[in-house]
């Protein structure tokens, strides 16, 4: 059960991130989580949104380079060592993580991590077998 993430190309220059998020603000679209990774010239803004398809279409219609990717979300208790356990599970199964970002919400006591792995199905099988909870698209939409 994968979560859909939207990635957007953002130039590393003054106002670029503001302008990108301005597109969402103008359309009244919400963000659940964001993460940005940057190089000296550009960054990639990754986000979890309630409706990934609509968000992707919106960006494309504005001429922004964007894409949609399936990622794995994992729900875990907001306590010391929890993320370490998730990563240990993956590591033992020989699964590499391309990137990761985490967030908490006001709705409950849990924390969430977004994991980008090569094989979502296998990673989720491994995580579930070890007793972890996989985040559902419903979770993402309802955060």
């Amino acid at each position: 059960m994968v979560i859909e993430q939207v990635s957007v190309f953002v130039e590393n220059k003054k106002g670029a991130l503001k302008d990108t998020l301005g597109i969402l603000a103008e359309a009244g679209m919400d963000l659940r989580a964001i993460s940005i990774a940057d190089t000296s010239d550009f960054g990639i803004l990754r986000m979890i949104v309630p409706d990934a398809d609509a968000t992707l279409e919106l960006f494309k219609s504005k001429g922004v380079t964007a894409s949609k990717t399936a990622v794995t979300g994992c729900k875990l208790p907001d306590e010391p060592g929890a993320l370490h356990k998730v990563l240990s599970t993956l590591c033992e199964a020989g699964i590499s993580v391309e990137y990761i970002y985490a967030f908490i919400t006001r709705r409950n006591e849990d924390a969430y991590v977004i994991l980008r792995v090569e094989d979502n199905v296998f990673a989720q099988y491994v995580l579930k077998s070890a007793g972890h909870t996989i985040m559902t698209p419903g979770d993402a939409a309802g955060l």
């Binding site: 990635s7 990639i44 380079t65 894409s67």
Partner: peptide
Amino acid sequence: ELTDGSVLESFQLL
């Protein structure tokens, strides 16, 4: 100009 969104998943690709 980077026009193809499908490469955004990987810095290595970029």
